[in-house]
Amino acid sequence: MKQTTGIDAALAARLLAGEASESEKERHRISLAVDADYRSDWAQWLWVWDAAGTEEVDRRDCDVAWTRLQRKIHSPLFLLKERTLALSLAAAAVLLLALLLPLLWTPAANQPELLVTAGGEDIQEVVLEDGTRVSLNANSRLSFPEEFGPHERRVYLHGEAWFEVEAQGGRPFYVETEDLLVKVVGTAFNVRSWPEPTGVSVEVGSGRVEVHSGLEGSEHILLQKGEGLVFHRSTKRLEQVALNRNYLAWKTGQLIFEDTPLSEVFQTLERTYRRPITADHPTIFEEKLGGSFSHQSFEHVVEVLCTTFQLEQHTVNGVVVLSRK
């Protein structure tokens, strides 16, 4: 009888089966954060769903998670991070030793990985040893050897980057992320590997790439110019999708909308600025936006949306929520 403010069964099923849309999940998170009744209602649905599983299913989920964890803690970026931590702990002692015994101090034999980090708001431009150009988005890390081997070129990415790869016959270029392996012949493409559930995707500007959902030989999709894919972490599946025309906005600063429903505009803004935004009424999602923005802040774009459609904005737990005036 107290179901009035609770979660609708079909929505609960979508949330639990991994079928809910991003805006549904966002609204769900907001309600979870502010409403205690909603929270206990959610706990009930969760309980029913968990109880409906079997030991076999639990074991399978656990296996998948363990494999994923193994992959993560054995990735070069992770090992590098570990090493850096250990180094900083030992730093004082090493420095002292170096000062006392400068003659005995020899540089470590060819340190294999270089690490570029773009922090804060800045985008970093990097040119690799083979001439490949990389634009690294803010809050992203790229690690790569000082010199590539004779048979392949391989880099490791956390975050998002645009690559313009020089073709070299017989020496393929690989981008590894926590979830994906992208194999390149000679092309320009974008790779995103953010922690958000919808944060993993690949988009191709020219040429061809082969994207693997794991090691080489696993499920893969061949992408051509103008194509994109997303990786669903929950199911470990790749899905080819229409290219979001604004996929490079983080790099170019240009956002262009042409008769675009606000539901799509929200997705694009989230992807570009990594800031959650939604609306509290279904008709708002259907409004269409035309126009372009050049190097504008998230706040400015939201302001324009409000003026154009006569909406007002509230911030609920950091999610910008638009509603009718």
């Binding site: 949330l15 639990l16 991994g18 999940k25 998170r29 979870l32 998670a65 559930p197 972490r233």
Partner: peptide, 12 residues
């Protein structure tokens, strides 16, 4: 999952 609200996020 109780706190973050969906399975994929909880797995992460």
């Amino acid at each position: 999952c109780k706190i973050v609200g969906d399975k994929a996020a909880a797995e992460d």
